[in-house]
Design a protein around this nucleic acid. Structure first.
Length: 476
RNA sequence: GCCGGGGUGACAGAGCGGUUAUGUGGCGGACUGCAGAUCCGCAUAUGAGGGUUCGACUCCCUCCUCCGGCCCCA
């Protein structure tokens, strides 16, 4: 039984979708005005894992992530760069997709863009005005917060408290200081669209309401985002959506991921600790990063450092080794079947408990340790073990790579074989390993160590196990 | 100030009212020609103070402290 922590109620609840196995899920996507950073990566990896697990549990998930491609920051950045705002957005949207793919994030079912939903947004704003939830002043439209029965369903803050802490000067024309813009009147040179209130563009919050209504309906199951979006973004989404449709609750489960800090500090340009996804992936592969993400609960903050990333890489290595090791099992009787059953159960129980990935990971490590003590199992169970490790890691989006030597390394291998006068039959690597075995039998350790050193330069590590030598590719 | 979430061993990071989390690293041992991998063992902990309890890291209160939100932000 899957249980999920709901920000709305501040407790774990049984997960029951509105309709059978169907799950509508929306996660606030990026504003595309710069390179994605590792904070984005954490959030989208976390939700990627949640979606994968839901699908693993046979839920029929429709996953929607929006793309905000018009907004103040985009316009500002474009003006600085002397670029068309929409072009700049387009450029960074492509980069966003590239980076997400590089992180092994599965495609969402839809990526609605704000610019492609202007009619829906206008219609929604109009409806809110008709409902008396919003009002227009000189081409701007504001949501009227004052009439709302209770504000702060998610953030648990009253309007008064919010205002007390507010650090901005308010627009005098607004009826109430906390009223927020649904439609912004166009300034010269800004991208704008025709509307009943003149040319303008959507406010930040309304786009989400409009797009998710279109793609997921007026009510749906899961809405996610990082914690910083709780207030005011998600708060306002609730007001707009429920204000327009009168249907409650607009969203059944609200999920929020914890923030990623870099060495104890919030990532920011001014601190100079801003790490982009590209930068990260130049130094480490996505598996290592995903392991780091998975080793903390999705709601907990992560304190990123290259040191902890290095540790993640090493830890993961252990699991990958076991996945490889089990393939060498001989046919025979063992306790493997029972261990597997237990591991499956523990893994799933951990994930069912609000996607507790650190605990799920612990189950895998426990399993790994037990498997290591065995040498055999029935062919069927061995295959299942291999599948289990693979699919469990796959839920985390960690790929168990096939052992394949890259083309360039293969060429170099042939050179090594030639250098040591090894006759190649079949796979080059196998021939080298075999030849080296012979050398070792003859106690020619000098030559065999040289061979090992040569291969290591190419990125292949030889390990002498009890009865045979195994080789593996040293990852990034 | 107000709201939310934390403070666990060298580090990362979970669970649980009473029994080893787990991983990385360290130390000792086994295996090994060496390296690596692997196994066994050891050490280091629950921010402070109260309370509830037979018993609290786990529940309650106070304090200290950190992070986040209240303009923008994944």
């Amino acid at each position: 039984m899957l249980r999920i922590y709901n920000t709305l109620t501040r407790r774990k609840e049984k997960f029951v979708p509105r309709e059978g196995k169907k799950v509508g899920m929306y996660v606030c996507g990026p504003t595309v005005y710069d390179y994605p950073h590792i904070g984005h990566a954490r959030t989208y990896v976390a939700f990627d894992i949640i979606v994968r697990y839901l699908r693993f549990k046979d839920y029929d998930v429709k996953y929607v992530v929006n793309i905000t491609n018009v907004d103040d920051k985009i316009i500002k950045r474009a003006n600085e760069a002397g670029e068309e705002p929409l072009k700049l957005a387009d450029r960074f949207e492509k980069i966003f997709f590239e980076d997400m793919q590089a992180l092994g994030i599965e495609k969402a079912d839809a990526y609605p863009r704000v610019t492609e939903h202007i009619p829906e947004i206008v219609a929604l704003v109009r409806k809110l005005i008709e409902n008396g939830c919003a009002y227009e002043i000189e081409g701007d439209v504001y949501y009227s917060v004052e009439k709302v029965g209770k504000y702060g369903a998610l953030s648990r803050q009253s309007l008064k408290e919010m205002m007390a802490g507010a650090r901005i000067e308010v627009d005098e024309r607004k009826r109430y200081p906390m009223d927020f813009a649904l439609w912004k009147k166009a300034k010269p040179g800004e991208p704008s669209w025709q509307s009943p209130w003149g040319r303008g563009r959507p406010g930040w919050h309304i786009e989400c309401s409009a797009m998710l209504m279109k793609h997921l309906g007026e009510q749906f199951d899961i809405h996610g985002g990082a914690v910083d979006l709780i207030s005011p973004h998600h708060e306002n989404e609730i007001l707009q959506s429920e204000g327009a449709t009168g249907k409650k609750p607009f969203v059944k489960y609200w999920l929020h991921t914890g923030f990623l800090k870099v060495e104890g500090e919030k990532m920011s340009k001014s601190l100079g600790n801003f790490i982009t996804v590209r930068e990260l992936l130049q130094k480490y592969d996505s598996n290592s990063f995903r392991f780091l993400v998975v080793s903390a609960h999705y709601r907990s903050p992560i304190d990123f450092s290259y040191g902890s990333l290095e540790k993640s890489k090493k830890s993961l290595e252990r699991l990958l080794n076991t996945a490889e090791f089990v393939k060498t099992f001989k046919e025979g009787q063992s306790n493997l079947g029972n261990l597997l059953k237990k591991a499956r159960k523990e893994f799933e129980a951990a994930m069912d408990d609000d996607f507790n990935t650190p605990q799920a990971l612990a189950a895998l490590f426990d399993f790994s340790k037990e498997v290591r003590k065995l040498k055999c199992g029935s062919r069927e169970v061995v295959a299942q073990t291999s599948d289990f490790l693979k699919s469990a890691l796959n839920i985390f989006g960690i790929l168990v790579r096939e052992k394949e030597i890259p083309g360039e390394a293969k060429r170099k291998l042939t050179e090594v074989a030639k250098k040591f006068g090894i006759r190649v039959e079949g796979e080059v690597i196998e021939s080298i390993v075999k030849a080296r075995e012979e050398l070792r039998k003859k106690k020619d350790y000098k030559t065999s160590d040289e061979i090992r050193a040569e291969l290591q330069k190419i990125g292949i590590l030889l390990e002498n196990e009890e009865e045979k030598t195994v080789w593996k590719i040293i990852s990034l």
